[in-house]
Design a protein around this nucleic acid. Structure first.
Length: 646
RNA sequence: GGGCCCGUAGCUCAGCCAGGAUAGAGCGCCGGCCUUCUAAGCCGGCGGUCCGGGGUUCAAAUCCCCGCGGGCCCGCCA
């Protein structure tokens, strides 16, 4: 029987043992010794740069190396050491490493791969929260992919996660949509049209028609007054008309009705404001009914798409409920009696200049160092509230209702400023803990090649379209391989591919969305990793059982790709855990891809089940199980469900 | 005008925060591999002024400064 200590991070365990030895030998603090992973396997498993150390000790790396070499080799986890380019390169003894690693996987089973936190927290993750005026587009897709991944990651780490979707039904955009919706007689979607697509159509049409009407009025004046601006505006009109004709061709009679009814309205702006006031004050039951019906239609469509994606929400919060419950009023009252209350441009506002002078406040609230933060205006002159103010109330609710330690808002980077104002406002109103524990997880926009998406003009790629296209592609490949194309499997694969594509890029990077890229289901994609996982599973199924550790020949992993795989498997828990704590979805993706590449190369050159040597065969089976386990963990961290067969 | 983010191979990206070893992947392109545990696979090849210029350093894709290019924000919109 092999007796080894149970450790959840085998590689790290050894690396730290090495560092401890080195620190003792050199009589320098462990923290001065950096543990690095060499850029290539040939250079060793662990590298400790001696450049800085040598400077500190006043002796050359060569001399240091000569002093410690023999002493380090007494550590049973060290196979060999060498010095190159000022690095102490260390090769780990793979017999020892595989003992520890295989033992850990044997004992920890499904838990191997992510270290459970011993300090569990309660997180609220708010994500998607798309305006209910058009279908979810590919930008919401990025948000959803990140939200799914982050929720999954935190749960795997042992935290509690509560997910929320904020239904922003009080914005101007919704009022525009509702205006069209009411003029049309609150129609249900036609046969075969998904609810959110229908609402999106009404919104884009209403908005475009209103813009055309207003622009035409303006043009009449400009024609004589300012010929130059006239020509410019004419261009915009052309664009609008192009959008209008595209929209019109979809549902001509609906569009015509809107054109007729909207042309009769004297002042559409006033009409929209009236609707907003009426809804916020819940003063007209007809209006409330119309808003809720339209919004709920849209949300029903969202839910279908989100269900397909695997995004689940514990709470669906209507912004209007918040207003009606008086939460927003309370915020405004509190703000008015706050010492930071003042008037800005004649409007009641919270002014942050004084808070921003407090020392360390920017670090505390994670505000960009030099971002100028203007006052937060509390209400419009018609006394209706503003989004960020309502969000103050919502933030407090997110913390208090479920007793959350942290709230993570997954929101596009274009909202950096309002999110900063939000934290400052919370701080100003005395919610200091909330302000410091509110995390804006920011991501850059998704662009379409050559243009920005525009919901207002109905110019977007919907998530539904992308999902359908990817499912088709996936089915094609499945049937091309003679596999009975189960629709479910095609769907799982397609959705995984999309989530991976959107969560594997750093959020700070803008994405130019090209469908072809998501449709590429080869290397560096979720299907590729899932395929690799299924391969590993298949080997284990065929082997029927995994031999006990005492039948393993631990010398079998001494070199080549087996050795590399062992290193990867032993390192995975540390890597995954770190990625989770840093909320870095992209790091998980790259680890998965790297291990898959390695496994597939090995797969090609080395037989597992057919190995005639039982000790080596046993070793390899443990290796395959390890690969399978870390791939499963990583995929699950991204919210992707591994499949046993593809 | 001010601020934030980004700029690495034809294209999409990793590496940058915590500076160090010949800058890594994928797509695309060229050439090979299916009587063998799943070919959504594997092997080989081509491909790079790390946007430009200064500076700090023994050492810069990485840190600092100045530019250039792209995106976003600076509203009683969200």
């Amino acid at each position: 029987m092999v007796i080894v200590e149970l450790v959840s991070e085998p590689f790290r365990y050894i690396a730290e043992s090495v560092r401890r030895d080195l620190s003792k030998e050199l009589s320098i603090p462990e923290n001065d010794l950096k543990i690095e992973i060499p850029p290539r396997y040939e250079l060793g498993d662990i590298a400790i740069p001696l450049h800085a150390v040598s400077k500190k000790l006043g002796s050359s790396p060569e001399h240091i190396y000569d002093t410690i070499k023999d002493k380090l080799l007494r550590n049973k986890y060290i196979e060999s050491v060498s010095l190159s380019s000022g690095y102490l390169d260390i090769w780990i003894n793979t017999q020892e490493l595989s003992k520890i690693t295989f033992h850990a996987i044997e004992e920890l089973k499904d838990l191997y791969g992510v270290v459970r936190t011993n300090n569990p927290k309660r997180y609220v993750v708010e994500y998607v929260s798309a305006n209910p005026v058009h279908p979810l587009h590919i930008g919401s897709g990025r948000n959803a992919a990140l939200g799914i991944a982050i929720s999954s990651m935190l749960k795997l780490r042992g935290h509690e996660v509560i997910t929320r979707f904020y239904i922003n039904d009080m914005g101007r955009q919704v009022a525009i949509m509702v205006l069209g919706f009411m003029l049309l007689g609150m129609p249900d979607p036609p046969e075969g049209v998904k609810e959110d697509h229908w609402i999106g159509y009404i919104y884009a049409s209403t908005n475009t028609i209103i813009e055309i009407i207003q622009l035409k009025k303006k043009l009449e004046k400009l024609k004589e007054e300012d010929p130059e601006e006239y020509r410019e505006k004419l261009k915009i009109l052309d664009e609008l008309i192009a959008d209008a004709s595209r929209l019109s061709s979809k549902f001509p009679s609906v569009f015509d009705t809107l054109v007729q009814k909207l042309s009769k309205i004297e002042d559409p702006e006033a009409e929209i404001s009236k609707l907003m006031i009426s809804y916020e004050k819940a003063s007209d039951p007809q209006v409330v009914k119309a808003f809720r019906k339209a919004v709920d239609l849209c949300i029903a469509g969202f839910k279908k798409t989100l269900e397909t994606l695997g995004a689940h929400f514990d709470y669906w919060d209507y912004e209007s409920d918040l207003a009606w419950e008086g939460v927003v009023e309370q915020v405004i009252q509190a703000a008015r009696s706050s010492r930071y209350f003042s008037y800005y441009k004649g409007a009641p506002a919270l002014v942050f200049d004084e808070i921003l002078k407090e020392r360390g406040i920017r670090e505390e609230l994670r505000l960009p160092k030099t971002l100028e933060i203007p006052p937060l205006i509390l209400m419009r002159s018609d006394e209706t509230t503003l989004y960020t103010v309502r969000d103050i109330g919502y933030s407090v609710k997110k913390f208090s209702e479920t007793g959350a330690d942290y709230v993570i808002n997954i929101i596009a980077s274009e909202q950096t400023l309002p999110q900063a104002q939000l934290r400052l406002a919370l701080y100003a109103l005395g919610f200091k803990r909330e302000a410091s524990n509110l995390i804006h997880y920011s991501y850059e926009m998704v662009m379409l090649p050559g243009q920005r998406m525009s919901g207002r003009r109905g110019r977007y790629v919907t998530l539904d379209e992308v999902i359908d296209m990817t499912i088709n592609k996936s089915s094609e490949i499945l049937s091309g391989r003679g596999v009975k194309a189960s629709e479910d499997i095609a769907k799982v694969i397609a959705v995984s591919a999309i989530k991976y594509a959107l969560a594997s890029v750093s959020p700070s990077k803008q994405i130019v969305f090209r469908v072809e890229e998501v449709l590429n289901l080869e290397r560096n994609s979720a299907p590729y990793i899932m395929y690799t996982y299924a391969r590993a599973s298949s080997i284990l199924n065929k082997a029927e059982s995994i031999p006990p550790l005492n039948e393993v020949d631990f010398k079998a992993g001494a070199e080549g790709r087996r050795r590399q795989l062992l290193i990867e498997i032993s390192r995975a828990p540390t890597e995954l855990t770190k990625a989770i704590d840093e909320l870095k979805t992209e790091d998980i993706a790259s680890m998965l891809n790297r291990i898959s590449d390695l496994f597939n190369s090995w797969y090609q050159e080395d037989q597992v089940i057919r190995d005639p040597d039982p000790g080596a065969r046993a070793y390899k089976l443990h290796l395959v199980r390890g690969v399978r386990q870390v791939l499963a963990k990583g995929l699950m961290a991204l919210g992707i469900k591994p499949l046993e067969r593809i």
